[in-house]
Design a protein around this nucleic acid. Structure first.
Length: 556
RNA sequence: GGGCUUGUGGCUUAGCUUGGACAUAGCGCCGGGCUUCUAACCCGGAUGUCGGGGGUUCGAAUCCCCCCAGGCCCGCCA
Protein backbone atom coordinates (compact mmCIF):
# COMPACT_ATOMS: atom_id res chain seq x y z
CA UNK A 1 0.00 0.00 0.00
CA UNK A 2 2.55 2.54 1.05
CA UNK A 3 5.43 1.55 -1.11
CA UNK A 4 6.93 4.99 -1.22
CA UNK A 5 7.19 5.18 2.56
CA UNK A 6 8.46 1.63 2.82
CA UNK A 7 11.14 2.22 0.24
CA UNK A 8 12.06 5.46 1.97
CA UNK A 9 12.45 3.64 5.29
CA UNK A 10 14.44 0.80 3.80
CA UNK A 11 16.94 3.16 2.20
CA UNK A 12 17.20 5.15 5.41
CA UNK A 13 17.88 2.03 7.43
CA UNK A 14 20.59 0.75 5.13
CA UNK A 15 22.33 4.12 5.14
CA UNK A 16 22.26 4.13 8.92
CA UNK A 17 23.76 0.63 9.03
CA UNK A 18 26.56 1.61 6.70
CA UNK A 19 27.40 5.03 8.17
CA UNK A 20 26.13 5.04 11.74
CA UNK A 21 24.33 8.31 11.02
CA UNK A 22 20.68 8.15 12.15
CA UNK A 23 19.39 10.82 9.82
CA UNK A 24 19.86 9.51 6.28
CA UNK A 25 19.25 13.04 4.92
CA UNK A 26 17.01 11.86 2.13
CA UNK A 27 15.68 14.46 -0.24
CA UNK A 28 13.52 14.44 -3.33
CA UNK A 29 15.81 13.63 -6.22
CA UNK A 30 13.87 15.84 -8.62
CA UNK A 31 14.80 15.07 -12.21
CA UNK A 32 17.91 13.18 -11.15
CA UNK A 33 16.34 10.44 -9.10
CA UNK A 34 13.36 9.32 -7.03
CA UNK A 35 15.29 9.91 -3.83
CA UNK A 36 18.75 11.19 -3.04
CA UNK A 37 20.90 11.61 0.05
CA UNK A 38 23.18 14.51 0.92
CA UNK A 39 24.83 12.58 3.73
CA UNK A 40 28.24 12.85 2.08
CA UNK A 41 28.43 16.51 3.08
CA UNK A 42 28.03 15.63 6.75
CA UNK A 43 30.47 12.73 6.58
CA UNK A 44 32.99 14.93 4.79
CA UNK A 45 33.60 16.86 7.98
CA UNK A 46 34.06 13.80 10.19
CA UNK A 47 36.21 11.90 7.73
CA UNK A 48 38.03 14.94 6.41
CA UNK A 49 37.52 13.74 2.85
CA UNK A 50 35.92 15.29 -0.19
CA UNK A 51 32.13 14.76 -0.30
CA UNK A 52 32.25 13.37 -3.82
CA UNK A 53 34.77 10.73 -2.81
CA UNK A 54 32.68 9.67 0.16
CA UNK A 55 29.58 9.52 -2.00
CA UNK A 56 31.36 7.30 -4.48
CA UNK A 57 32.60 4.89 -1.80
CA UNK A 58 29.30 4.75 0.04
CA UNK A 59 27.37 4.20 -3.18
CA UNK A 60 29.64 1.26 -3.97
CA UNK A 61 28.76 -0.21 -0.56
CA UNK A 62 25.04 0.40 -0.98
CA UNK A 63 24.91 -1.25 -4.39
CA UNK A 64 25.98 -4.51 -2.77
CA UNK A 65 23.26 -4.44 -0.11
CA UNK A 66 20.56 -7.05 -0.75
CA UNK A 67 17.89 -4.85 0.87
CA UNK A 68 18.26 -2.42 -2.00
CA UNK A 69 17.87 -4.95 -4.77
CA UNK A 70 15.95 -3.45 -7.65
CA UNK A 71 16.91 0.09 -6.74
CA UNK A 72 19.56 1.76 -8.86
CA UNK A 73 22.14 3.44 -6.65
CA UNK A 74 24.64 5.85 -8.14
CA UNK A 75 26.87 8.62 -6.92
CA UNK A 76 26.70 11.86 -8.80
CA UNK A 77 29.15 14.34 -7.37
CA UNK A 78 28.41 14.61 -3.65
CA UNK A 79 24.93 13.16 -4.06
CA UNK A 80 23.89 9.53 -3.98
CA UNK A 81 20.85 8.91 -6.15
CA UNK A 82 18.27 6.18 -5.81
CA UNK A 83 16.10 5.25 -8.75
CA UNK A 84 13.30 2.81 -8.10
CA UNK A 85 13.13 -0.19 -10.35
CA UNK A 86 10.58 -2.26 -12.19
CA UNK A 87 9.19 -4.00 -9.11
CA UNK A 88 8.28 -0.69 -7.47
CA UNK A 89 6.63 0.56 -10.63
CA UNK A 90 4.55 -2.55 -11.26
CA UNK A 91 3.44 -2.71 -7.62
CA UNK A 92 2.31 0.89 -7.90
CA UNK A 93 0.19 0.22 -10.95
CA UNK A 94 -1.24 -2.96 -9.45
CA UNK A 95 -2.41 -1.01 -6.38
CA UNK A 96 -3.73 1.93 -8.37
CA UNK A 97 -6.13 0.01 -10.60
CA UNK A 98 -8.09 -1.21 -7.58
CA UNK A 99 -11.28 0.65 -6.60
CA UNK A 100 -10.77 3.01 -3.67
CA UNK A 101 -7.03 3.46 -4.33
CA UNK A 102 -5.48 5.74 -1.72
CA UNK A 103 -7.92 4.74 1.01
CA UNK A 104 -6.48 3.62 4.31
CA UNK A 105 -7.93 0.95 6.62
CA UNK A 106 -10.28 2.15 9.38
CA UNK A 107 -8.27 3.53 12.25
CA UNK A 108 -10.89 3.61 15.00
CA UNK A 109 -10.07 7.23 15.78
CA UNK A 110 -13.01 9.60 16.12
CA UNK A 111 -12.54 13.09 14.73
CA UNK A 112 -14.91 16.04 14.89
CA UNK A 113 -14.38 18.68 12.23
CA UNK A 114 -16.14 22.03 12.38
CA UNK A 115 -16.28 24.29 9.36
CA UNK A 116 -18.21 27.17 7.78
CA UNK A 117 -20.23 28.15 10.89
CA UNK A 118 -21.05 31.53 9.33
CA UNK A 119 -23.36 33.86 11.20
CA UNK A 120 -26.90 33.37 9.84
CA UNK A 121 -27.49 37.01 8.94
CA UNK A 122 -27.10 36.83 5.16
CA UNK A 123 -26.06 34.51 2.34
CA UNK A 124 -22.73 32.75 2.21
CA UNK A 125 -20.28 34.84 0.24
CA UNK A 126 -17.03 33.99 -1.53
CA UNK A 127 -15.12 34.42 1.75
CA UNK A 128 -17.32 31.98 3.69
CA UNK A 129 -17.03 29.31 1.07
CA UNK A 130 -13.27 29.32 1.39
CA UNK A 131 -13.98 27.95 4.85
CA UNK A 132 -16.53 25.45 3.49
CA UNK A 133 -14.26 24.17 0.75
CA UNK A 134 -11.14 23.88 2.90
CA UNK A 135 -13.24 22.16 5.57
CA UNK A 136 -15.08 19.82 3.25
CA UNK A 137 -11.89 18.83 1.44
CA UNK A 138 -10.22 18.06 4.76
CA UNK A 139 -13.26 16.01 5.75
CA UNK A 140 -12.99 13.94 2.57
CA UNK A 141 -9.26 13.44 3.13
CA UNK A 142 -9.78 12.30 6.72
CA UNK A 143 -12.44 9.81 5.66
CA UNK A 144 -10.11 8.49 2.98
CA UNK A 145 -7.36 8.23 5.57
CA UNK A 146 -9.55 5.91 7.64
CA UNK A 147 -10.74 8.21 10.42
CA UNK A 148 -14.23 8.12 11.88
CA UNK A 149 -15.51 11.59 11.19
CA UNK A 150 -18.35 13.84 12.21
CA UNK A 151 -18.63 17.20 10.48
CA UNK A 152 -20.36 19.93 12.44
CA UNK A 153 -21.73 23.40 11.78
CA UNK A 154 -21.82 25.58 14.88
CA UNK A 155 -24.89 27.79 14.64
CA UNK A 156 -24.35 31.18 16.25
CA UNK A 157 -27.99 31.85 17.04
CA UNK A 158 -27.53 34.23 19.98
CA UNK A 159 -25.53 37.01 18.42
CA UNK A 160 -26.23 40.71 18.09
CA UNK A 161 -26.50 40.21 14.34
CA UNK A 162 -29.43 37.84 14.80
CA UNK A 163 -31.06 40.21 17.25
CA UNK A 164 -30.77 42.90 14.59
CA UNK A 165 -32.45 40.63 12.07
CA UNK A 166 -35.30 39.87 14.47
CA UNK A 167 -35.68 43.57 15.26
CA UNK A 168 -35.84 44.30 11.53
CA UNK A 169 -38.54 41.72 10.97
CA UNK A 170 -40.63 43.26 13.75
CA UNK A 171 -40.14 46.92 12.89
CA UNK A 172 -39.44 47.26 9.18
CA UNK A 173 -41.13 46.30 5.97
CA UNK A 174 -39.87 42.77 5.64
CA UNK A 175 -42.09 40.83 3.30
CA UNK A 176 -40.24 38.22 1.32
CA UNK A 177 -40.05 39.00 -2.39
CA UNK A 178 -41.36 36.51 -4.87
CA UNK A 179 -38.67 33.92 -5.56
CA UNK A 180 -36.30 35.50 -3.03
CA UNK A 181 -34.03 32.97 -1.32
CA UNK A 182 -34.36 32.88 2.48
CA UNK A 183 -30.79 33.91 3.24
CA UNK A 184 -30.92 36.76 0.73
CA UNK A 185 -34.16 37.91 2.37
CA UNK A 186 -32.53 37.84 5.81
CA UNK A 187 -29.60 39.88 4.48
CA UNK A 188 -31.94 42.49 3.03
CA UNK A 189 -33.66 42.95 6.39
CA UNK A 190 -30.33 42.91 8.25
CA UNK A 191 -28.84 45.58 5.98
CA UNK A 192 -32.00 47.70 6.37
CA UNK A 193 -31.90 47.32 10.16
CA UNK A 194 -28.29 48.50 10.19
CA UNK A 195 -29.23 51.57 8.18
CA UNK A 196 -32.01 52.38 10.65
CA UNK A 197 -29.71 52.04 13.63
CA UNK A 198 -27.24 54.41 12.02
CA UNK A 199 -30.01 57.00 11.74
CA UNK A 200 -31.35 56.32 15.23
CA UNK A 201 -28.81 54.87 17.70
CA UNK A 202 -31.48 54.42 20.42
CA UNK A 203 -32.60 51.32 18.55
CA UNK A 204 -29.57 49.64 20.09
CA UNK A 205 -31.48 49.53 23.37
CA UNK A 206 -34.30 47.58 21.77
CA UNK A 207 -31.80 45.14 20.28
CA UNK A 208 -30.14 44.72 23.69
CA UNK A 209 -33.48 43.85 25.22
CA UNK A 210 -34.00 41.15 22.61
CA UNK A 211 -30.59 39.68 23.43
CA UNK A 212 -31.30 39.62 27.13
CA UNK A 213 -34.66 37.94 26.58
CA UNK A 214 -32.96 35.20 24.60
CA UNK A 215 -30.21 34.70 27.14
CA UNK A 216 -32.84 34.27 29.87
CA UNK A 217 -34.73 31.80 27.75
CA UNK A 218 -37.87 33.81 27.02
CA UNK A 219 -39.83 31.31 24.89
CA UNK A 220 -41.49 33.81 22.54
CA UNK A 221 -38.23 35.59 21.71
CA UNK A 222 -36.30 32.35 21.45
CA UNK A 223 -38.88 31.13 18.95
CA UNK A 224 -38.46 34.26 16.81
CA UNK A 225 -34.68 33.90 16.82
CA UNK A 226 -34.92 30.23 15.97
CA UNK A 227 -37.31 30.83 13.12
CA UNK A 228 -35.13 33.39 11.31
CA UNK A 229 -31.91 31.47 11.93
CA UNK A 230 -33.50 28.29 10.58
CA UNK A 231 -34.68 30.06 7.47
CA UNK A 232 -31.21 31.43 6.86
CA UNK A 233 -29.68 27.99 7.38
CA UNK A 234 -32.13 26.54 4.86
CA UNK A 235 -30.65 28.96 2.35
CA UNK A 236 -27.10 27.97 3.35
CA UNK A 237 -27.93 24.31 2.88
CA UNK A 238 -29.00 24.91 -0.72
CA UNK A 239 -25.77 26.78 -1.42
CA UNK A 240 -23.62 24.14 0.24
CA UNK A 241 -25.39 21.34 -1.61
CA UNK A 242 -24.54 23.11 -4.86
CA UNK A 243 -20.93 23.19 -3.72
CA UNK A 244 -21.01 19.51 -2.77
CA UNK A 245 -20.37 20.44 0.85
CA UNK A 246 -22.09 18.51 3.64
CA UNK A 247 -22.40 18.57 7.42
CA UNK A 248 -23.44 15.67 9.63
CA UNK A 249 -24.79 17.83 12.41
CA UNK A 250 -25.83 21.40 13.13
CA UNK A 251 -25.03 22.30 16.74
CA UNK A 252 -26.86 25.31 18.14
CA UNK A 253 -25.02 27.71 20.40
CA UNK A 254 -28.10 28.43 22.51
CA UNK A 255 -28.37 24.74 23.41
CA UNK A 256 -25.25 25.16 25.52
CA UNK A 257 -27.11 27.67 27.69
CA UNK A 258 -30.24 25.54 27.92
CA UNK A 259 -28.49 22.28 28.79
CA UNK A 260 -26.44 23.89 31.56
CA UNK A 261 -23.06 23.16 29.95
CA UNK A 262 -22.16 26.85 29.96
CA UNK A 263 -22.93 27.21 33.69
CA UNK A 264 -20.91 24.09 34.39
CA UNK A 265 -17.86 25.35 32.53
CA UNK A 266 -18.12 28.75 34.23
CA UNK A 267 -18.14 27.03 37.62
CA UNK A 268 -15.01 25.14 36.62
CA UNK A 269 -13.25 28.25 35.35
CA UNK A 270 -14.00 30.10 38.59
CA UNK A 271 -11.72 27.71 40.45
CA UNK A 272 -8.70 28.41 38.26
CA UNK A 273 -5.89 30.44 39.82
CA UNK A 274 -6.13 32.69 36.76
CA UNK A 275 -9.78 33.55 37.52
CA UNK A 276 -10.67 37.11 38.49
CA UNK A 277 -14.18 36.95 39.90
CA UNK A 278 -15.04 40.58 40.49
CA UNK A 279 -18.14 42.15 38.94
CA UNK A 280 -17.26 40.24 35.79
CA UNK A 281 -15.68 36.83 35.67
CA UNK A 282 -12.51 36.96 33.60
CA UNK A 283 -9.29 35.00 33.21
CA UNK A 284 -5.88 36.60 33.48
CA UNK A 285 -3.86 34.79 30.83
CA UNK A 286 -0.96 37.24 30.85
CA UNK A 287 1.46 34.51 31.96
CA UNK A 288 0.78 32.86 28.60
CA UNK A 289 1.37 36.05 26.65
CA UNK A 290 -2.21 37.26 26.33
CA UNK A 291 -2.38 40.92 27.27
CA UNK A 292 -6.11 41.37 27.64
CA UNK A 293 -8.44 39.81 30.13
CA UNK A 294 -10.47 36.93 28.77
CA UNK A 295 -14.02 37.80 29.84
CA UNK A 296 -16.31 34.85 30.54
CA UNK A 297 -19.35 36.40 32.25
CA UNK A 298 -20.73 39.92 32.10
CA UNK A 299 -21.39 42.00 35.23
CA UNK A 300 -25.13 41.49 34.67
CA UNK A 301 -24.55 37.76 35.02
CA UNK A 302 -25.06 36.79 31.39
CA UNK A 303 -22.51 34.74 29.48
CA UNK A 304 -20.45 35.94 26.56
CA UNK A 305 -19.67 34.11 23.32
CA UNK A 306 -16.38 32.84 24.73
CA UNK A 307 -18.13 30.98 27.54
CA UNK A 308 -20.51 29.21 25.18
CA UNK A 309 -17.61 28.41 22.87
CA UNK A 310 -15.67 26.90 25.76
CA UNK A 311 -18.68 24.77 26.69
CA UNK A 312 -19.03 23.64 23.08
CA UNK A 313 -15.36 22.71 22.80
CA UNK A 314 -15.26 20.92 26.15
CA UNK A 315 -18.19 18.84 24.92
CA UNK A 316 -16.40 18.03 21.67
CA UNK A 317 -13.20 17.18 23.53
CA UNK A 318 -15.10 14.74 25.77
CA UNK A 319 -16.73 12.94 22.85
CA UNK A 320 -13.99 12.77 20.21
CA UNK A 321 -10.33 11.78 19.99
CA UNK A 322 -9.37 14.70 17.82
CA UNK A 323 -11.05 18.10 17.47
CA UNK A 324 -10.41 20.25 14.39
CA UNK A 325 -11.84 23.70 13.59
CA UNK A 326 -11.58 25.60 10.34
CA UNK A 327 -11.67 29.30 11.19
CA UNK A 328 -10.96 32.65 9.58
CA UNK A 329 -7.72 34.37 10.50
CA UNK A 330 -9.72 36.99 12.39
CA UNK A 331 -10.32 34.30 15.03
CA UNK A 332 -6.64 33.68 15.69
CA UNK A 333 -6.44 35.52 18.99
CA UNK A 334 -9.68 34.28 20.51
CA UNK A 335 -8.94 30.76 19.28
CA UNK A 336 -5.56 30.83 20.98
CA UNK A 337 -7.21 32.02 24.22
CA UNK A 338 -9.74 29.22 23.89
CA UNK A 339 -7.00 26.62 23.39
CA UNK A 340 -5.06 27.96 26.34
CA UNK A 341 -8.11 27.92 28.62
CA UNK A 342 -9.14 24.39 27.63
CA UNK A 343 -5.66 23.16 28.50
CA UNK A 344 -5.92 24.88 31.89
CA UNK A 345 -9.02 22.90 32.77
CA UNK A 346 -7.46 19.70 31.49
CA UNK A 347 -9.42 19.29 28.26
CA UNK A 348 -7.83 18.70 24.90
CA UNK A 349 -7.60 21.83 22.80
CA UNK A 350 -8.78 21.88 19.20
CA UNK A 351 -6.37 21.84 16.29
CA UNK A 352 -7.18 24.88 14.23
CA UNK A 353 -6.83 25.55 10.52
CA UNK A 354 -6.85 29.29 9.97
CA UNK A 355 -7.43 30.67 6.51
CA UNK A 356 -6.74 34.27 5.52
CA UNK A 357 -9.34 36.63 4.14
CA UNK A 358 -10.88 36.87 0.71
CA UNK A 359 -11.46 40.45 -0.32
CA UNK A 360 -12.88 42.19 -3.38
CA UNK A 361 -10.78 44.41 -5.65
CA UNK A 362 -12.60 47.40 -4.09
CA UNK A 363 -11.93 46.30 -0.53
CA UNK A 364 -13.05 43.91 2.19
CA UNK A 365 -16.46 42.25 2.14
CA UNK A 366 -19.20 43.11 4.59
CA UNK A 367 -22.62 41.54 5.02
CA UNK A 368 -23.75 44.49 7.09
CA UNK A 369 -23.27 46.98 4.27
CA UNK A 370 -24.16 44.52 1.52
CA UNK A 371 -20.70 44.63 -0.02
CA UNK A 372 -20.08 41.02 -1.00
CA UNK A 373 -20.23 38.55 -3.88
CA UNK A 374 -22.59 35.80 -2.82
CA UNK A 375 -21.74 32.19 -3.44
CA UNK A 376 -25.10 31.77 -5.17
CA UNK A 377 -24.27 34.49 -7.71
CA UNK A 378 -20.89 32.89 -8.34
CA UNK A 379 -22.49 29.49 -8.89
CA UNK A 380 -25.09 30.92 -11.29
CA UNK A 381 -22.49 32.81 -13.32
CA UNK A 382 -20.05 29.96 -13.53
CA UNK A 383 -22.70 27.49 -14.65
CA UNK A 384 -23.77 29.86 -17.40
CA UNK A 385 -20.19 30.26 -18.54
CA UNK A 386 -19.61 26.50 -18.38
CA UNK A 387 -22.79 25.82 -20.35
CA UNK A 388 -21.67 28.18 -23.12
CA UNK A 389 -18.31 26.46 -23.21
CA UNK A 390 -19.81 22.96 -23.39
CA UNK A 391 -22.18 24.08 -26.12
CA UNK A 392 -19.27 25.34 -28.22
CA UNK A 393 -17.24 22.18 -27.72
CA UNK A 394 -19.99 19.58 -27.85
CA UNK A 395 -22.86 20.97 -29.92
CA UNK A 396 -24.06 17.44 -30.72
CA UNK A 397 -25.04 16.70 -27.10
CA UNK A 398 -28.62 17.30 -25.98
CA UNK A 399 -29.35 20.19 -23.65
CA UNK A 400 -29.85 18.08 -20.52
CA UNK A 401 -26.44 16.45 -20.93
CA UNK A 402 -24.77 19.78 -21.58
CA UNK A 403 -26.41 21.25 -18.49
CA UNK A 404 -25.28 18.35 -16.40
CA UNK A 405 -21.69 18.65 -17.62
CA UNK A 406 -21.79 22.43 -17.06
CA UNK A 407 -22.92 21.87 -13.47
CA UNK A 408 -19.99 19.55 -12.77
CA UNK A 409 -17.50 21.76 -14.56
CA UNK A 410 -18.72 24.84 -12.68
CA UNK A 411 -18.41 23.07 -9.36
CA UNK A 412 -14.90 21.91 -10.27
CA UNK A 413 -13.84 25.42 -11.25
CA UNK A 414 -15.08 26.94 -7.99
CA UNK A 415 -13.78 24.29 -5.62
CA UNK A 416 -10.40 23.94 -7.28
CA UNK A 417 -9.86 27.66 -7.60
CA UNK A 418 -10.38 28.09 -3.87
CA UNK A 419 -8.64 25.01 -2.55
CA UNK A 420 -5.51 25.37 -4.68
CA UNK A 421 -4.16 28.30 -2.69
CA UNK A 422 -2.50 27.67 0.65
CA UNK A 423 -4.87 28.74 3.47
CA UNK A 424 -2.43 31.23 4.96
CA UNK A 425 -2.46 33.44 1.90
CA UNK A 426 -5.03 36.21 1.67
CA UNK A 427 -6.65 36.44 -1.74
CA UNK A 428 -8.61 38.91 -3.85
CA UNK A 429 -11.69 37.55 -5.58
CA UNK A 430 -11.38 37.96 -9.33
CA UNK A 431 -14.28 37.15 -11.67
CA UNK A 432 -12.02 36.61 -14.67
CA UNK A 433 -9.91 34.07 -12.84
CA UNK A 434 -12.91 32.36 -11.25
CA UNK A 435 -14.47 31.80 -14.68
CA UNK A 436 -11.28 30.43 -16.25
CA UNK A 437 -11.33 26.74 -17.14
CA UNK A 438 -7.81 26.37 -18.49
CA UNK A 439 -4.74 24.81 -16.93
CA UNK A 440 -4.38 24.89 -13.16
CA UNK A 441 -8.13 24.60 -12.97
CA UNK A 442 -10.55 21.91 -11.85
CA UNK A 443 -11.91 21.39 -15.36
CA UNK A 444 -8.37 20.75 -16.64
CA UNK A 445 -8.08 17.78 -14.27
CA UNK A 446 -11.60 16.60 -15.10
CA UNK A 447 -10.65 16.75 -18.76
CA UNK A 448 -7.64 14.48 -18.22
CA UNK A 449 -9.92 12.03 -16.42
CA UNK A 450 -12.55 12.14 -19.18
CA UNK A 451 -9.81 11.52 -21.71
CA UNK A 452 -8.67 8.41 -19.87
CA UNK A 453 -12.28 7.22 -19.66
CA UNK A 454 -12.70 7.69 -23.37
CA UNK A 455 -9.65 5.56 -24.16
CA UNK A 456 -10.80 2.81 -21.81
CA UNK A 457 -14.27 2.80 -23.29
CA UNK A 458 -12.93 2.34 -26.80
CA UNK A 459 -10.43 -0.29 -25.74
CA UNK A 460 -12.88 -2.99 -24.74
CA UNK A 461 -11.48 -5.83 -22.65
CA UNK A 462 -7.77 -6.33 -22.22
CA UNK A 463 -5.42 -8.33 -20.01
CA UNK A 464 -3.83 -6.26 -17.26
CA UNK A 465 -0.09 -5.99 -17.58
CA UNK A 466 2.16 -4.26 -15.05
CA UNK A 467 5.58 -4.35 -16.72
CA UNK A 468 6.23 -0.85 -17.96
CA UNK A 469 9.04 0.14 -20.28
CA UNK A 470 9.26 3.68 -21.60
CA UNK A 471 10.29 6.78 -19.65
CA UNK A 472 6.82 8.29 -20.08
CA UNK A 473 5.14 5.15 -18.74
CA UNK A 474 7.44 4.94 -15.75
CA UNK A 475 7.17 8.64 -14.93
CA UNK A 476 3.39 8.36 -14.91
CA UNK A 477 3.40 5.26 -12.72
CA UNK A 478 5.72 6.93 -10.21
CA UNK A 479 3.42 9.93 -10.03
CA UNK A 480 0.46 7.61 -9.42
CA UNK A 481 2.41 5.88 -6.65
CA UNK A 482 2.62 9.10 -4.63
CA UNK A 483 -1.13 9.45 -4.07
CA UNK A 484 -1.44 7.62 -0.71
CA UNK A 485 1.42 9.61 0.78
CA UNK A 486 -0.32 12.82 -0.29
CA UNK A 487 -3.38 11.81 1.74
CA UNK A 488 -1.18 11.10 4.75
CA UNK A 489 0.65 14.40 4.43
CA UNK A 490 -2.59 16.38 4.38
CA UNK A 491 -3.84 14.64 7.52
CA UNK A 492 -0.58 15.52 9.25
CA UNK A 493 -0.35 19.11 8.06
CA UNK A 494 -4.03 20.04 7.54
CA UNK A 495 -3.18 21.67 4.23
CA UNK A 496 -5.69 20.51 1.61
CA UNK A 497 -4.09 22.55 -1.18
CA UNK A 498 -1.44 19.82 -1.39
CA UNK A 499 -4.07 17.59 -2.99
CA UNK A 500 -4.87 20.29 -5.54
CA UNK A 501 -1.21 20.58 -6.52
CA UNK A 502 -0.79 16.81 -6.69
CA UNK A 503 -3.88 16.31 -8.85
CA UNK A 504 -2.75 18.94 -11.30
CA UNK A 505 0.72 17.40 -11.55
CA UNK A 506 -0.81 13.98 -12.15
CA UNK A 507 -2.99 15.40 -14.93
CA UNK A 508 0.09 17.13 -16.42
CA UNK A 509 2.07 13.90 -16.41
CA UNK A 510 -0.81 12.00 -17.99
CA UNK A 511 -1.30 14.62 -20.71
CA UNK A 512 2.38 14.43 -21.59
CA UNK A 513 2.19 10.62 -21.70
CA UNK A 514 -0.91 10.88 -23.87
CA UNK A 515 0.83 12.98 -26.47
CA UNK A 516 3.97 10.87 -26.71
CA UNK A 517 2.69 7.31 -26.41
CA UNK A 518 0.03 5.67 -28.51
CA UNK A 519 -2.33 3.50 -26.51
CA UNK A 520 -5.15 2.13 -28.66
CA UNK A 521 -3.00 1.89 -31.75
CA UNK A 522 -0.19 0.01 -30.11
CA UNK A 523 -0.36 -3.76 -30.17
CA UNK A 524 -0.09 -6.84 -28.02
CA UNK A 525 1.68 -6.50 -24.68
CA UNK A 526 2.47 -2.83 -25.24
CA UNK A 527 -1.22 -2.08 -25.71
CA UNK A 528 -2.11 -4.11 -22.61
CA UNK A 529 0.40 -2.42 -20.33
CA UNK A 530 -0.51 1.06 -21.56
CA UNK A 531 -4.20 0.38 -21.12
CA UNK A 532 -3.48 -0.88 -17.63
CA UNK A 533 -1.61 2.33 -16.94
CA UNK A 534 -4.49 4.40 -18.32
CA UNK A 535 -6.85 2.49 -16.05
CA UNK A 536 -4.54 3.21 -13.10
CA UNK A 537 -4.36 6.92 -13.86
CA UNK A 538 -8.10 7.12 -14.49
CA UNK A 539 -8.78 5.50 -11.13
CA UNK A 540 -6.25 7.70 -9.33
CA UNK A 541 -7.64 10.87 -10.92
CA UNK A 542 -11.15 9.76 -9.99
CA UNK A 543 -10.18 9.19 -6.35
CA UNK A 544 -8.28 12.48 -6.21
CA UNK A 545 -11.13 14.45 -7.80
CA UNK A 546 -13.73 12.93 -5.51
CA UNK A 547 -11.55 13.71 -2.51
CA UNK A 548 -11.50 17.29 -3.77
CA UNK A 549 -15.31 17.16 -3.88
CA UNK A 550 -15.29 17.39 -7.67
CA UNK A 551 -17.31 15.11 -9.99
CA UNK A 552 -15.12 12.72 -11.93
CA UNK A 553 -17.20 12.89 -15.11
CA UNK A 554 -16.39 10.51 -17.95
CA UNK A 555 -17.22 12.83 -20.81
CA UNK A 556 -17.05 16.59 -21.28
C1' G B 1 1.63 51.15 19.79
C1' G B 2 1.67 45.55 20.48
C1' G B 3 0.70 40.62 18.38
C1' C B 4 -0.19 37.14 14.23
C1' U B 5 0.59 36.48 9.06
C1' U B 6 2.00 37.17 3.92
C1' G B 7 5.81 39.32 0.35
C1' U B 8 8.81 34.22 -5.18
C1' G B 9 9.37 36.79 -13.50
C1' G B 10 4.19 41.96 -15.91
C1' C B 11 -0.06 39.17 -13.05
C1' U B 12 -1.40 34.59 -10.12
C1' U B 13 1.16 30.60 -7.65
C1' A B 14 4.21 25.70 -5.56
C1' G B 15 8.43 24.90 -2.67
C1' C B 16 9.69 27.17 3.49
C1' U B 17 7.66 23.03 9.19
C1' U B 18 12.29 18.39 7.95
C1' G B 19 18.62 23.77 4.50
C1' G B 20 21.51 20.75 -0.64
C1' A B 21 22.24 19.43 -7.60
C1' C B 22 20.12 24.52 -13.08
C1' A B 23 13.42 27.74 -7.95
C1' U B 24 7.35 24.82 -9.42
C1' A B 25 3.57 25.72 -12.58
C1' G B 26 -0.38 28.74 -14.87
C1' C B 27 -2.04 33.49 -17.28
C1' G B 28 -0.05 37.04 -20.60
C1' C B 29 4.02 37.47 -24.64
C1' C B 30 6.91 35.03 -29.06
C1' G B 31 7.17 30.49 -32.29
C1' G B 32 5.18 25.59 -33.53
C1' G B 33 1.40 21.30 -33.44
C1' C B 34 -5.68 18.89 -34.78
C1' U B 35 -7.47 13.67 -42.18
C1' U B 36 -3.92 10.18 -35.83
C1' C B 37 -6.75 7.47 -28.65
C1' U B 38 -11.40 14.26 -26.52
C1' A B 39 -6.71 20.77 -28.75
C1' A B 40 -10.72 22.49 -21.65
C1' C B 41 -4.51 19.67 -24.77
C1' C B 42 0.83 19.33 -26.16
C1' C B 43 6.06 21.05 -27.61
C1' G B 44 9.82 25.04 -27.83
C1' G B 45 11.41 30.31 -26.43
C1' A B 46 11.90 35.07 -23.65
C1' U B 47 10.97 36.92 -18.71
C1' G B 48 13.53 35.92 -11.48
C1' U B 49 18.22 41.07 -6.76
C1' C B 50 12.92 34.29 -4.16
C1' G B 51 10.58 42.39 -0.41
C1' G B 52 15.59 44.85 1.54
C1' G B 53 19.91 44.32 4.78
C1' G B 54 22.86 41.49 8.14
C1' G B 55 24.04 36.58 10.37
C1' U B 56 24.57 30.94 10.95
C1' U B 57 26.49 27.08 7.43
C1' C B 58 30.78 23.59 3.09
C1' G B 59 25.77 25.16 1.20
C1' A B 60 19.95 29.62 2.56
C1' A B 61 13.74 30.92 -1.13
C1' U B 62 14.01 27.53 3.25
C1' C B 63 16.97 28.67 9.86
C1' C B 64 18.13 33.41 13.19
C1' C B 65 18.12 39.02 13.83
C1' C B 66 16.80 44.01 12.04
C1' C B 67 14.07 46.94 8.57
C1' C B 68 10.16 47.95 4.72
C1' A B 69 5.23 46.94 2.52
C1' G B 70 0.19 44.56 2.45
C1' G B 71 -3.70 41.68 5.26
C1' C B 72 -5.84 40.40 9.99
C1' C B 73 -6.44 41.00 15.34
C1' C B 74 -6.09 43.71 20.09
C1' G B 75 -14.74 44.94 23.22
C1' C B 76 -18.73 43.32 29.67
C1' C B 77 -19.50 42.04 20.12
C1' A B 78 -20.15 37.43 17.99
Amino acid sequence: MLMLQETYKTIGKVIEEKTGVTDAQLIDGGEHADLATTIAFTLAKQKKQAPALIAKDLAAELVKDPALTGITVEAKGPYINFIFGAAYVSEAVKAAVKPGYGSFPKKGIRVVLEHTSANPNGPLHVGHIRNSIIGDTLARVFRKAGYGLEVQYYVNDMGRQIAMVVWGFENLDSTQWEGEKEDAHIARVYIAANREIEKDPTITQQVNILMQLVEHGDPATAKKFRREVSRCLDGFKVTMKNLNVAHDRFVWESDFIRNGFTDRIIAKLKKLPQARDEDTLALDLSEFGFENKYVIRRSDGTSVYAARDLAFHAWKAANFDRVIDVLGADHKLIAAQLQCTLKLIGEKAPEIVHFEFVSLPEGSMSTRTGKFVSADDLITEIRKRAFDEVTIRRPELDEETRKSIAKSVGLAAIRYDIVKVTPEKSTVFDWKEALDFERQSGPYIQYAHARACSILEKAGTFAECYELETDQEIALAKQIAKFPSVIEKIVAELHPHILATYSRELADTFNTFYHFEQVLKSEGKIRDRRLTLVRAVQNTLKEALETLGIDAISTM
